[in-house]
Design a protein around this nucleic acid. Structure first.
Lengths: 306, 306
DNA sequence: TTTCCATATTGTCTTGGACAGAAGTGGCTT
DNA sequence: AAGCCACTTCTGTCCAAGACAATATGGAAA
């Protein structure tokens, strides 16, 4: 599954592009440069920053390590190779299980039809719930690893996302009936663009017999608030990938909590919240799909008692 | 179909929350305050900005009008009522045909299941090709109109997008076989986030028996270039909604043309190019789905002769 | 061990100046 | 009229350097 990623080595990126590609704010990029001396981009004729491909690469590695609990000041002056080493040492198991490796091979050999068929076959064999919680979750993880290792091309990742969306949405629409309570309104806040996570949640909800109103990504809080009565939702569930910072995710959950009546539950999950210690008052953190299934069950028991 | 936005009057928002909720950057919020005197937020004990509910509301109205083509300096000092008036005056008096109106009614009455079923029914009745080129195209148009008139809620638009994606992807995956040449690589450039247009194109391509490699939205040009040999594409097709400016779309087509070998065709379509007079040398503008079907046919005839 | 507090680290906010690129305007030619 | 070019205005984004809130760390006390 070796894929040379063909990045032009001489490409230069302005600060907005780097913010978009790394998730680090412009303010953060400037203050790192001031404090730590990295990144030290060259300047154009108007003194505006231009970041190199190597700097962008290192910033991605730093972002990943920081998400895993390292602190910027401790690691920012290490070389790309040392950082990659640090990442590698974090995961002792180096190779994915055979079934996942087979799927990755199809993807990185650009066999779109083969990849699609293999995914469909896995879905048939496992059923929706296991397909999502095992195969898709593992694929997400290992594609992330391959991405860090530079072993997967950007366009293969795009193709992966498209095919998984096709299959999940196909499964979602194929599900008969309307589902029973609770009715969960599912979306993400502005800035959170990852759709796969949302679709996985939707699929699990439906497989558990729940009713789901999916609004896609990036719904402003106010609009979520207005959607709740319109769709008579019982629960609002938000997904935060690790593209979000933990603080931003917690702040979003809190804001939504203050806007909604107490009778509506607020759930949050995803990579950005995986390390969060405690949930904002009146909200629920879901750290796994099992957590979500328990939350669903708990809701049903509690409401049945009333 | 009237949407009242209902906010707590006494809430205060910091600048990051306003950025998230309005999509206006912090820099923009500060420079508007400096230049136009609006918004003029109160300050907390540390001189940090706190925006009121009314300011947030007005910012959202401004954002809507600016997206529609108004200029900030001209409208920023009008009252909320005047801005709402301006939005209302945009509403054309035309009405959609009955079948589209029925679908819109289901959507704006928040009947998600009814809307889904009506879409499915239309698909069954019309077949994929007519469903896409007639029903979905008309729905897009009339939802755009309703949005400008402020007659449709943000969350209803989100729900619409999700359901149409579900149905189109379902139809795409249900299509048997691999399709015949040409193999079309389909995506959009960074900045272009509209997915429905891409899915419509993919559905039409598949309905015409073509082979399609869909990379989703926002693929950087360099990655498109790398994807072409990897997937052995014959044609690259790009979609530009009217969120793109015409010049930016034409520049993107030109850049891609120079990067790819002459044997690969470059096609462009979508709202941003609807008014373009002539295509960049060596590229093809598709102004309708029929144009695309002709282009497909022409490619097949030309290649058959060789 | 757990809890608590002082200290260090880190991200976000502040101001006011600058300027590139988009949008609008006017005059000229076809 | 309609296209096209040059000129002006408008508008979003970038800059620097300082400040401080929020979080994490590390050691002392319970």
């Amino acid at each position: 599954m070796e894929t040379a990623v063909d990045l032009p080595d001489d490409a230069l990126y302005n600060i907005a592009a780097v913010e978009r590609d790394t998730g680090l704010s412009k303010d953060t990029l400037r203050v790192w440069e001031r404090r730590y001396g990295f990144p030290a981009p060259v300047r154009d004729q108007h003194d505006e920053r231009l970041y190199s491909t190597g700097q962008l690469e290192k910033l991605r590695l730093l972002r990943l390590l920081i998400d895993y609990g390292h602190r910027p000041g401790k690691i920012i002056n290490q070389s790309n190779a040392e950082l990659a080493q640090l990442i590698a040492s974090r995961a002792p198991e180096q190779t994915p299980p055979a079934d996942i490796a087979a799927l990755l091979d199809l993807l990185t050999s650009h066999d779109a039809d083969g990849f699609r068929n293999a995914l469909l076959q896995a879905l048939m064999k496992q059923g929706l719930l296991r397909f999502v919680t095992e195969t898709v979750a593992a694929l997400n993880h290992w594609i992330g690893e391959a991405w860090i290792a530079g072993k997967i091309a950007v366009f293969d990742e795009h193709l992966y996302s498209e095919h998984v969306q096709n299959i999940l949405r196909n499964a979602i629409i194929a599900q008969p009936g309307r589902g029973s309570a609770p009715r969960v309104l599912l979306t993400s806040l502005p800035g959170e663009k990852h759709r796969i996570g949302l679709l996985m949640v939707e699929a699990v909800l439906i497989a558990e017999g729940g009713a789901c109103v999916a609004l896609g990504t990036e719904t402003p809080v106010i609009d979520i608030k207005n959607a709740v009565p319109a769709y008579r939702a019982d629960v609002v569930a938000l997904s935060f990938s690790s593209a979000f910072t933990q603080n931003a995710a917690l702040a979003g959950l809190s804001e939504l909590r203050t806007l909604l009546p107490d009778s509506i539950e607020v759930w949050g999950g995803g990579g950005a919240l995986a390390r969060a210690r405690k949930a904002p008052a009146g909200t629920l953190l879901l750290r796994s799909f099992d957590d979500m299934r328990y939350a669903l069950e708990r809701w049903r028991v509690e409401r049945a008692q009333r």
